[in-house]
Nucleic acid binder design. Structure first.
Length: 459
RNA sequence: GGUACCGUGGCGGAGAGGCUACGCACCGGAUUGCAAAUCCGUGUACACCGGUUCGAAUCCGGUCGGUACCUCCA
């Protein structure tokens, strides 16, 4: 029998058994990217970590019973700024960035989501929700053209981040606008600015403008998953203010006790001990690393090598380690048909608050049963290539090149050199044989003399 | 200042009141013309100080250290 899924709920800070609201059916909303630039590794971490949740839910509840929503934020200050500075239209910028994002996720073996709403497709729903908030006394149009959510109108605001309003006001970065009734009030709708193009704004009862950041998730999750749904996930930097404000909007507009019942947050990705962030400018994009010759699976395993809630320090050593571990798995697997069932030990590790390090340790114990190992690793979204593709390049779409630097040697060239070396060995001309091997080593080709002859792989 | 999280062997990283994972690296051996790969073997770690307990790395208190969030952020 399968054990229960347990998840750490940010709302309660506790590990809780997960039970869907509607038995047998699950709804998940994951905060997706703002599309104005290539995805960085932090975006990838969130997508990959919660892809494990997606895979687990699909396994335990069935593909047809899981609604997994990941939004695309395609209206935002940064998008407009980037479009203005590059001269690319907003539509082209967001469409291109969205495709880049999806291509990167495919390389990382992230499953397609069931719904991918774009903010601009839900403007009407956002306006309706803002109007409801105004009608119910939770929001007001301010003198400066902004429509603001009035935080003191919600007595239990701050539950998710466990902040009192005093704490929030004491924060150094609160912008105290004279138009706000309370310093902690936040924007639902902002008026068009003089330098903003008309196609970046929308008509509303409060004049032309565009939605604030938080309202889109409230409107889209309601439209697709309902007023209350099972799981809402994202990076832990979104706990405050983004998710706190989503909760405020949704609960006040819908008059519900919850927005999502379970909130999951992944830890931040670090680089050299510091948080990688757009503001610090120390970030790698997924594209950077794929371009350096790292496989998507190597990146994926690296991102899953720590528990999702803990900070993850991303290093070159970690990539090497991930690559070596995958080499080992691909050697053991050797392409046999994977077992029908995912080994329970691996499933149970993931059911236990998405414990991917534990799951990988379990996989390591399956080296004697390669069909089991393959089934388990594929459940984690790994071993997606054939061993031949993995070791000798020619990977699938989006898998990135091999380690490169093979000086243009084709498999035929390599085979010819191997044949020449075999002749030299037969003649006991080991100097010549070693020279050929050294030549190949320099170009990133490793030879392995086995019982059935010599095989090669890319380092 | 407020709110959280965290300190495990060379590195990464689970677990968790007694059975001391797992990987990577290293070292020794087997194998090999030499390598590579593989196989065998070696590693007794839980920041510090107290407390609870028959027993604590695991529970409690404190200390030190690290990180994040406090209206750009996944």
């Amino acid at each position: 029998m399968s054990s229960a899924i347990r998840l750490t709920n940010t709302l309660t800070r506790q590990l809780e058994p997960f039970e869907p609201m509607v038995p047998g059916r699950v709804g998940v909303y994951l905060c997706g990217p703002t599309v104005y630039d290539l995805a960085h590794l932090g975006n990838a971490r969130s997508a990959v970590n919660f892809d494990m949740l997606h895979r687990l839910l699909r396994h335990d509840f069935g593909v047809a019973n899981v609604a997994f929503v990941r939004n695309i934020t395609d209206v935002d200050d940064k998008i407009i700024a980037r479009a203005l500075e590059t001269g690319v239209s907003i539509a082209d910028l967001t469409a291109g960035s969205t495709q880049d994002y999806l291509d990167d996720l495919e390389a990382l073996c992230v499953l397609s989501v069931t719904n991918q709403p774009r903010a601009t497709e839900y403007i009407d729903e956002m306006i309706a929700m803002i109007q409801t908030l105004i009608d119910k006394g939770h929001a007001y149009p301010a003198d400066d053209g902004n429509v603001l959510f009035h935080v003191p109108s919600m007595p239990d605001y701050g539950q998710l981040s466990r902040r009192s309003q005093d704490d929030i006001i004491a924060g150094a970065r609160v912008e105290v606008s004279s138009a706000k009734r309370d310093p902690s009030d936040f924007v639902l709708w902002k008026p068009q600015k003089p330098d903003e193009p008309d196609h970046a704004t929308f008509d509303s009862p409060w004049g032309r403008g565009r939605p604030g950041w938080h309202i889109e998730c409230s409107a889209m999750s309601k439209a697709i998953l309902g007023e209350v749904f099972d799981i809402h996930a994202g990076g832990n930097d979104l706990i405050f203010p983004h998710h706190e404000n989503e909760i405020a909007q949704s609960r006040c507009a819908n008059e519900t006790a919850h927005m999502a019942r379970t909130w999951l947050h992944n830890g931040m990705l670090m680089v050299e001990g510091q948080k990688m962030s757009k503001s610090l400018g120390n970030f790698f994009t997924v594209r950077d690393l794929l371009g350096q010759g790292h496989r998507g699976e190597t990146l994926r395993l690296s991102l899953l090598s720590g528990h999702y809630r803990a900070p993850l320090d991303f290093t070159q050593a970690k990539l090497t380690e991930a690559k070596n571990r995958l080499d080992g798995w691909y050697r053991v697997w050797d392409g046999v048909t994977p077992a029908d069932k995912v080994p329970e030990a691996v499933l149970n590790a993931i059911r236990d608050d998405l414990n991917t390090p534990q799951a990988m340790a379990e996989i390591d114990t399956l080296r004697g049963q390669s069909d089991q190992l393959a089934a388990a690793a594929q459940f984690l979204g790994l071993l997606q290539l054939t061993p031949d593709q993995w070791f000798r390049g020619g990977g699938g779409a989006g898998e990135g090149a091999g380690t490169g630097g093979d000086a243009g040697l084709s498999p035929n060239d390599i085979d010819a050199l191997i044949a020449e070396r075999a002749e030299a060995k037969k003649a006991r001309d080991f100097g010549r044989a070693d020279a050929i091997r050294d030549q190949l080593t320099e170009t990133g080709i490793v030879l392995e003399d086995g019982a059935g002859g010599t095989t090669w792989r890319r380092a």
